[in-house]
Design a protein around this nucleic acid. Structure first.
Lengths: 146, 146
DNA sequence: GACGACGTTGACGTTAACGTAAAGTGGTTG
DNA sequence: CAACCACTTTACGTTAACGTCAACGTCGTC
């Protein structure tokens, strides 16, 4: 998990007021700094279901958003299976039966707990980092003086 | 990544005012809800270096803290290799040369960026969860009325 | 002194999440 | 038309992080 910056938000809509609705796999890959292989793998795992023009995949806004959510979920440590579960339930929502919906709410509560824990972890970890950094700077100081 | 609760903080110091300094591998495992195998693996990967009484491992407070930090790091998505890198540099700090220390500060800055990004991710994810939950509740409502 | 609980070291197995290489298709461009 | 992309499928390879199993040693106790 190294540093990077790109988040690939909504495109800036260069000319007209609602266009550029589709993407190739390569475009999407560059946008999010993943490989096409990764995107195909996500499809194979049921996280994406792009349109097909013949053999080649055509991605729309919806697919892009899904990919974005998927990658965000990954950064938060969710497995692809977990992410898929939520996505599937979300898609099945309109006609979902009560049991399914309650199950979904359970999962969401679980994720929420997870988020809370991570927030706490982050706070603690930041303190640790502060501490280590302080010590490191002190040592550096002394090295400079001698 | 499922839900659980134990964090295994400092023991409550039952009788005297500074005791219970060592742990067996099994105790530690139960404390943090991992298997002994996991703990041995972390040692093999250079994250722990417990004392040995003959063959058997003896863990002190220091080791327990390290394990705690390691697991926290894991929950935040760091690899064992990354965690080890930080631990090693931390240990080598007192006599670390300037280059090493600067490298450490770089790594820390990197982790910090990571934390920031995760905070943002969590905020965004929480909104998504809110949204999904709302819709789910709406659908449930309608199911109840009809 | 047999038994069970706990510890030890190998060594091989497993899963998730891709990487990589091979071999083919379809379009456009000099 | 040949060369070059970008895309496709199939399939085997790889890495991290353990799980699992075998075979053994060491206590305490019944």
């Amino acid at each position: 998990m190294s540093t990077s910056k790109a988040e690939a938000t909504t495109p800036v809509n260069g000319s007209l007021t609602r266009q550029r609705r589709t993407y190739s796999i390569g475009e999407l890959a560059r946008m999010f700094e993943v490989t096409p292989r990764t995107i195909r793998f996500y499809e194979q795992e049921g996280l994406l279901a792009p349109e097909r023009r013949g053999q080649t995949r055509i991605y729309h806004e919806k697919d892009r958003v899904r990919l974005k959510l998927t990658l965000r979920g990954k950064r938060l440590g969710f497995s692809l299976a977990e992410i898929r579960e939520v996505i599937e339930m979300y898609d099945a929502m309109p006609d979902g039966n009560a049991r399914q919906l309650k199950r979904l709410l359970e999962i969401l509560a679980d994720k929420r707990n997870n988020m809370e824990r991570q927030l706490e972890d982050i706070r603690l970890m930041q303190r640790e980092l502060d501490d280590v950094e302080m010590r490191a700077r002190e040592v550096l100081e002394r090295l400079g003086q001698d």
